[in-house]
């Protein structure tokens, strides 16, 4: 499984990518939406995990750009807000939605569900 993590919180996303790699997942990270567009232009990924709110290109618009560049990728939104409104937007726009801080086991479970093409979790299953 190839995963691209996109978040402007550089240490957060760098360490998260390292932790995924230690668990056998091929994970890369970039720190902006613009860098994600560049990366996806040259490399394919199974799943993109992206922050909803980032400077410049935010998560919602980024997902649209990446989908137009390369179809078939799954998307997981991360957010620091975790409000009901965010959940509604996140679950409508992406395969899955996880609030920060997250448990890596939860992320890995969701990555596998996304790749397997399972339905997004119910609201109760957040």
């Amino acid at each position: 499984m190839r995963v691209l993590l996109v978040d402007d919180e550089q240490k957060f996303v760098t360490f998260l990518a390292t932790r995924l790699r230690l668990r056998g997942i091929d994970a890369d990270c970039v720190f902006s939406g613009e860098a994600a567009v560049e990366r996806v232009s040259s490399s394919g990924y199974d799943v993109v995990v992206l922050d909803v709110k980032m400077p410049g290109l935010g998560g919602i618009e980024l997902r649209r750009r990446l989908e137009s560049l390369r179809g078939g990728m799954k998307f997981i939104f991360l957010t620091g807000h975790g409000s009901e409104g965010d959940f509604q937007v996140g679950s409508a726009e992406a395969s899955f939605y996880l609030p920060k801080p997250l448990k890596i086991e939860d992320l890995i479970a969701v990555l596998h569900q996304a790749v397997a093409g399972r339905a997004r979790p119910s609201e109760d299953g957040r």
Binding site: K11, F15, R19, L22
Partner: peptide
């Protein structure tokens, strides 16, 4: 939102330390 970002970074850093 900012506090959650800080907590998320602390959480991943501590997690990586544990790993």
């Amino acid at each position: 939102h900012s506090i959650k970002n800080v907590m998320a970074t602390v959480s991943e850093t501590a997690g990586l330390l544990g790993d």
